[in-house]
Computed example of a mutant assay.
Amino acid sequence: MRFLAVLPFLLLAMLVLPLLTWQSLRRLKLHADHDEAMPSTRTLALQSMGLQVVMFSTAWLAAWGNGINITWSGGWTAMVALLALGVLATGLVFASLEARRPLTSSDRLRQHLRQVGAKDPYWVVAVAMAAIAEEYCYRGVLTTLLSSAIGTLGAVLASAVLFGAAHLGQGWHSGLFSAMFGLCLQALCYAQGGILAAIIVHFAYDMIVIAAGRRRWECDHIAHS
C-alpha cells in the first residue's frame, strides 16, 4: 500500500517533470528555428494549473499512504519573518540580475512570459496554485519521504535539484536559480516548522517578477514602436 501510494508522486517528481521540461526546451527551440507562434499566455496558465493539480494530488496520496503529516502554519516569530524577507530579497536580487541578461532566440518562453500582466486573474490563480503545490510537494512531502532513505541533508539537496530540473523550461539559468531558491525556501520551512511562510514568499516572489517583467516588456514595446 505504501509503495503504490508513493510511486506516482516519485515518478512524477523524479522522471516525468524533468522529461516534460526537456521536451519543452526542444519545442521552444523548434518554435524559434521555424519562427512559429507561441501558445497564448492564458493557455500556458491553464496548463500550469492542471499540472499543479496533478502534482498536489499525487503528493497528497503519497503523504496519506505513508502517514506523513505536513505542518502548514508552524510557528511565527520575528526570526522567521526576517528570514522570510531575506529569502524574498535574495530571490529578487538574482531575478533582477537575470532580467538584465540579453534575450536570445532560445529565450522565447522567457520573452513570451514578460507579456503576462500581474493583474491577469488566470495567472494570479496559477501562481497561487504553483506556490501551494510546489512547497507542499518539494519542501514538504518529497523532502520527508527522501530523508528516511538518504538522510536530511541528502533529501534537501535532492529536492532542490529536482525543483531546479522542473524549471529548466525557462533555460539553465532558471533551473540553477530555482535549485538555489529551493534551498533557501527549505531553510525557511525548517525555521518555521511549517510550509506556510515558504508559500507566501514563493507567491510574492513570482508576482513581483511577473509585474517587473510586464513593465520591462511594455518599456521595450514602446521603445521599438
Rank of each mutant, 00 (worst) to 15 (best):
G193K: 01
G164K: 05
T77A: 03
L97D: 05
R42W: 10
Y190R: 08
A191G: 04
A32W: 04
L196R: 10
E134Y: 06
A5F: 05
A59Y: 04
A204K: 04
I195A: 10
S24K: 13
L15R: 15
S225H: 13
Q192M: 01
V53M: 04
L15D: 01
S48R: 15
A204I: 12
G169E: 11
V201M: 00
C219W: 12
N69Y: 13
S148R: 14
G86Q: 01
I68P: 10
N66R: 13
S106M: 05
V125E: 03
D33L: 11
A166V: 06
L176I: 08
H173Q: 10
A204R: 02
S147R: 13
C137T: 11
F94W: 06
W172F: 14
I199V: 11
F177A: 10
Q111K: 10
H112R: 12
L168A: 15
Q47D: 03
G67Q: 07
H221M: 14
L176D: 04
L183V: 07
A149D: 08
T58A: 14
Y136C: 06
G65A: 10
T71C: 11
W22A: 15
A149V: 13
A81E: 02
G86E: 01
F163V: 01
F56M: 09
W123S: 04
S106D: 14
A179R: 03
V125D: 03
V125I: 14
E36L: 14
K29V: 11
A158I: 07
L162T: 04
S147G: 11
A165S: 06
V16D: 05
L82R: 00
L10S: 09
D120K: 06
A95R: 07
V141T: 01
R26S: 12
H31D: 11
Q111M: 12
L142N: 05
E134R: 06
Q52N: 11
W217L: 12
R101T: 04
A197M: 09
A204H: 04
N69W: 13
I70K: 04
C137F: 06
Q23G: 09
F181G: 01
E135M: 02
